[in-house]
Design a protein around this nucleic acid. Sequence first.
DNA 1: TAGATTGTTAATCGATTAACAATC
DNA 2: TAGATTGTTAATCGATTAACAATC
Lengths: 204, 204
Amino acid sequence: MNKKSVSRLSHYRKVLLRLNELGFDRIFSDTLGEEAGVTAAQVRKDFSIFGISGNKRGGYIIADLIARLDDILKKRTVTRVIIVGAGNLGKALMHYPGFRRDSIEISAVFDIDPTKISRKADVPVLPLEEVGEFIAAHGIDIAIIAVPDVAAQRVFDILQRAGIRGILNFTTMTFKDNEDVVVNNVYLQFELENLIYFTAEKPA
Amino acid sequence: MNKKSVSRLSHYRKVLLRLNELGFDRIFSDTLGEEAGVTAAQVRKDFSIFGISGNKRGGYIIADLIARLDDILKKRTVTRVIIVGAGNLGKALMHYPGFRRDSIEISAVFDIDPTKISRKADVPVLPLEEVGEFIAAHGIDIAIIAVPDVAAQRVFDILQRAGIRGILNFTTMTFKDNEDVVVNNVYLQFELENLIYFTAEKPA
DNA sequence: TAGATTGTTAATCGATTAACAATC
DNA sequence: TAGATTGTTAATCGATTAACAATC
């Protein structure tokens, strides 16, 4: 229902995996909230939205909760994702350990620079021209855009035409909202500028 | 006043720099909103919060707007930032072109792995033990945490003790809110999981 | 002047939190 | 049973949008 509550489910899941590893079996909404940085009411509300229930008085069974969240967040099957842009950021994301561990696989990276192509690598780096073909052949739904701003719109158009349904955008460009494509933006630079603003001492 | 509106100011600024480059001098709230992906009312409201005014009927003069935003966002002086964690992500952020271009300088990167240290590099990679000393010597206020989750709390404690005032956190750990430290979280994995959720076809 | 756009106030919308009845 | 915690509804809070008077 709510975009933010889905991301919080991811966060709860991460906390629960850690607690599970530490040998805990049960948890209460207030403990889970504390670990995830939200209120107990928020936790229960989020669970209620997705029909997740616990035991009055007994809290939640961690293993059951993880199983339920795995279903909701599609963790039972591997989701294949591609990256466009084999620069520093694209390459870092290619090997991001948090993805593989949680059923997200980077299937390939695409770039226009011929010197960056390496078809035989663990995660292949392929020419951008092949992206449509690859998407169709591998049934890819989600792409990460990690190219310079100037190339963003062109890449977006290509991906959209290729039938991509979701995009994680690391550029500062905005794309016209489209029925068929969901775009989540990660504005790294703006996050840092935000921090600069809020940590600057206010002039007296 | 509002956290999100500060980030939108960054976004407006980015759009304006681009339009300025293209030779435009004036802009209206609806055009700027469209470029930044928000409504015209949002643009005017944000400007109103920060006391930015334009001309009834004549819109805004782009150069003036950029100057005003540069002041608010502290773009007149270079802000020095450090990164903790010289893994793939830390190294990618070290060379992120968007930072330098907008008066953000990565002064140094810190890591516990001795094989990663390189004191003579363009951006030096130093042992984590030296971080407190470095922060004090260079008057650093802001740090980026790009370490594995297990190390996050320890790094946070060290940074807090060293007097850091703002943290951009790339781990999935949450830190207890503190009067003295502002924390912005970038949950890369959760953003992707969010996309997976919203692009998955709903079961019939 | 007529027309268009800002700046701000009021209305709406949505998300978070508080509160408490249900119940284990 | 008494006590504690869930699940949900209602209250609150905050942010976005609509509307329109001011004015260039």
